[in-house]
């Protein structure tokens, strides 16, 4: 096999281009996949909202109390502070993360419809 340096150089250039081509192709596919996923999520979001609106809107309880030890950030809906504290402790334990490194926005009790 008469294989010279010029040919090796050419093969190297083609090789790195093939690697780039394959990975750029994957990048494009991931971007398309993400865009499709995002658009589906957006479509589902407004579709879900009117469906809810059609039902008799449940009266949302105003935020009443703040859970202890949260620097006044977490809002509680239909949840007592004791349950909220317990839930936050469980989440922190499951995530193996100190509770002061977690940020809870709100806690709401989900009531199943009869």
């Amino acid at each position: 096999m008469n294989y010279g340096f010029g040919q090796a150089l050419l093969d190297s250039v083609v090789g790195i281009l093939v690697v780039f081509f394959a990975l750029v192709l994957l990048m494009c596919i991931i971007k398309i996949m993400t865009a499709i996923g995002d658009s589906r999520a957006k479509k589902n979001a407004p579709a879900a909202a009117p469906a809810k609106a059609a039902e008799p809107a449940p009266v949302q309880a105003p935020p009443k109390k703040l859970a202890p030890g949260t620097a006044g950030e977490v809002k509680l809906y239909d949840t007592d502070p004791r349950t909220a504290a317990m839930l936050m402790a469980i989440v922190a334990d499951e995530l193996k993360t100190p509770i002061n490194e977690l940020r809870f926005i709100s806690i709401r009790e989900i009531k199943e419809e009869a």
């Binding site: 340096f5 090796a8 750029v24 990048m27």
Partner: peptide, 28 residues
Amino acid sequence: PLIANPKSLLLGAAAQFGIFAAFLMAFG
């Protein structure tokens, strides 16, 4: 992390430069 930031793939491709540089040196 790769799916979250697909541009990472470009960096993964660029780092393969070492393969072809070493190939050229080993041969040439």
